[in-house]
Design a protein around this nucleic acid. Structure first.
Lengths: 202, 202
DNA sequence: GTCTATATATAGATAGAC
DNA sequence: GTCTATCTATATATAGAC
């Protein structure tokens, strides 16, 4: 008979992480205080430190989920019949969180923090490489089928696609009246013209 | 007979700003202490606060120069005979600071800080809009001469070019073995295929 | 103008009652 | 497991001698 209920424990952890994400998006890692996270979550600092050993560990835990989410999306994309369409769909799905503007700020905060925290950077780096590797596979298939330009190195092109999506996040936090649909459409146009072999119809 | 030598004053200011830029690139705005800047500059905190009222003012001063530099580059580009070539050259010159890796980290720190400091964001926003406006003019000229695709809105395309260059900065701080020349070449390929009207030769 | 010394505030994290 | 109270460290900025 155990004294802790693991389900309740996990639920509370997530509750804290959600509150923390809101705060980190609002003010960044350094300027967000543990007291603010506690206020947002409706708990005391003693309680927060019962669930997480440090403020940093709260931050890191938020993004460990991301790698898992992307791995799922890649697995789905790998099963698609049309690899090039799968690439475009993947780009759409990666851009989707931008419908919530605070996610853009959080993404930038992540990049900034990674440049000063090597372990955290390694986590993100791993996530990005997994994503780029999955994209490269799709591009290779598309090139084999003659759908896209085979002269561009798939690995390099894949890492540029990841980067272009990242740039969309930068753009979202920096552009007044950011219109997600228009921006995604432009990104698709850039990618299509960059890689598609077929003659232009536009 | 004045007691301050304005030349010496300005030189000291720049010395402090250079030292501060090194520190901010290394650890970000929040984690960099005034004491560290002073150590890097070889002065005391009392002395630093003689030149700048706050730590933030030091940070801001570093980037006020950027707008002036870009304005100069734009003025040069506006006089070029070949507007499309001028765009590509401008992109090269914007990417050039990346030869020093610490500049990439500083750029990311800037973006993160801007998302929490509205006045600072306004400064950067102004700089970016000036740059995009200048690029849009060049694109309009290039389209009028039939050099590039006239169906793409020049203003939107221009802001994407600015964004693609920004993404290069993100990429630089995130890519192992970042090879500036290869990356710039790929960026030029993307831009050329995105906008150029002439049939592909590759 | 530059320094040393320090005021003041506020952070992350801990202790221990309940 | 959650709280209140607090420790300890460290930060920005100031005061005032030289």
């Amino acid at each position: 008979m155990r004294t802790v209920d693991p389900v309740r424990h996990e639920a509370k952890r997530r509750h804290i992480l959600n509150a923390a994400a809101v705060c980190f998006a609002r003010k960044g890692f350094e300027r967000t205080t543990v007291a603010e996270i506690c206020a947002e979550a409706g708990i005391s600092s003693g309680s927060l430190f019962h669930y997480f050993p440090t403020k940093r560990s709260v931050f890191v835990a938020i993004f460990e989920q991301d790698g898992r989410d992307n791995a799922e999306r890649l697995a789905l994309a790998a099963e698609a019949d049309d690899p090039w369409q799968a690439v475009l769909d993947l780009v759409d799905s990666l851009a989707e969180p931008l419908a919530e503007p605070r996610m853009a700020r959080l993404a930038i905060e992540v990049a900034a923090h990674a440049s000063r925290d090597d372990d955290f950077a390694a986590l993100l780096f791993h996530n990005d490489r997994e994503l780029a590797a999955g994209l490269a596979d799709l591009l290779r298939r598309a090139a084999a089928e003659g759908r896209i330009d085979g002269s561009v190195d798939p690995a390099l092109a894949a890492s540029w696609i990841v980067n272009l999506v990242d740039s969309l996040y930068g753009r979202a936090s920096f552009t007044a009246d950011f219109a997600l649909e228009d921006e995604v459409a432009m990104l698709r146009l850039i990618l299509t013209r960059f890689l598609l072999v077929e003659p232009r119809k536009d």
